[in-house]
Design a protein around this nucleic acid. Sequence first.
DNA 1: CGCACTCTTGAGGGAGCTCAACATTTGTGG
DNA 2: CCACAAATGTTGAGCTCCCTCAAGAGTGCG
Lengths: 211, 211
Amino acid sequence: MLKASSHQGRDPYAPELLHFRKGETIYVEGDPAPSWFMVETGVARTCRFHANGHRQLTGFQYPGDVLGYEQETHRDSAEAVTDVTMRRHRMALPASPAAGDRTTDQSLAITALRNALDNANRCIFLFGRRTAPERLAAFILMTAERLGGYDDIELPMCRTDIADYLGLTIHTVSRTLTQMSRERLITIDGAHRCRILDMPGLRSLAGRHED
Amino acid sequence: MLKASSHQGRDPYAPELLHFRKGETIYVEGDPAPSWFMVETGVARTCRFHANGHRQLTGFQYPGDVLGYEQETHRDSAEAVTDVTMRRHRMALPASPAAGDRTTDQSLAITALRNALDNANRCIFLFGRRTAPERLAAFILMTAERLGGYDDIELPMCRTDIADYLGLTIHTVSRTLTQMSRERLITIDGAHRCRILDMPGLRSLAGRHED
DNA sequence: CGCACTCTTGAGGGAGCTCAACATTTGTGG
DNA sequence: CCACAAATGTTGAGCTCCCTCAAGAGTGCG
């Protein structure tokens, strides 16, 4: 399941660098989870599938973000949104045999988990009982912040990803973005690029007057 | 902000037992977060408020669940749904001074965070682009599992809590529950008690044919 | 008993989904 | 390089689900 450019027989605790091409699967829901990943370059997505086939994205992971830190088996699937480079870490099991600096490892894990939890809670907050324009405004602002806070944003994911993340259809996403550009909040330049024109207006729409 | 029945001058690392009465505030968004909590008895809820005043619950915490494990300041508020007993733990800072078994403490934190993250992801999954009946079916099943897997469930929270958690209005929650009892999926016995009549039907409605 | 609070129920309207078609971009082979 | 196909994105019309507004019923407490 794990596509690794691995070298057998190396130090099993040295974090390993892996490459995935756009669209490739990193791991699948239900796979055993002996390791977790931190994005170095590119963007990944995590998702789950409903019984009815509907896909729900649970998050996008940018450089520095962690994914796959779960007990026993993975609770979601992960795929590469763009070409992506990730570092694979061994699970820091409490009862693991002697191996280097476990404490540092655990601290790293705690920080990573805390960030992941914060992101998850932010999502729950952002997308509970909100209109399509509010969700998209929040999404654009969130993405802009992740990418460094510039007004010019490269959206690495396709419309379907955005829709499955925000709990909308691609039609509504498309229509709403068009509407937002009509209202001079943003400009859309192709499918993967947009620019924030009216930051206060966008923040207000997202329900973030302060912060 | 922290209402503690604390004894000054005790071992600062001994987890402390706190009591909160139904409706009492445990901590508030923005408070400094020098400690985190684990529920012993009762139920708590975490929530955030939108600029427009709308409340979004981010989770319910049952015995064994953790809350407030955040960096620097709390990212959400926490309140007691019922009378609740919690154990307060010190943050295990990587650079904290010598104090007992830090490693065990960190392992505990990792387990707690992992569970919290799993719950958060489950919520994102359950409530993305789903109808009111689907959300409520999922909610009832989730609550039943949390309470031990019995068919007879005591819902400790009020309708407003359920609505703010699922991103619905109390009207829709009420109407939908009534409808579900008309369809013989559940019975409603007062505001805080329900019984699952048709488990397969409920699982199917929640989109969980297997698992 | 009366007040406050929570929950339930109904009628009407609007946001977003469905169905359908078209436009644009990307990829592939001649 | 162009022709064509496939994938992705945009736009419109109609309908459904859930929110809004409004009122009534049940419950707990002084």
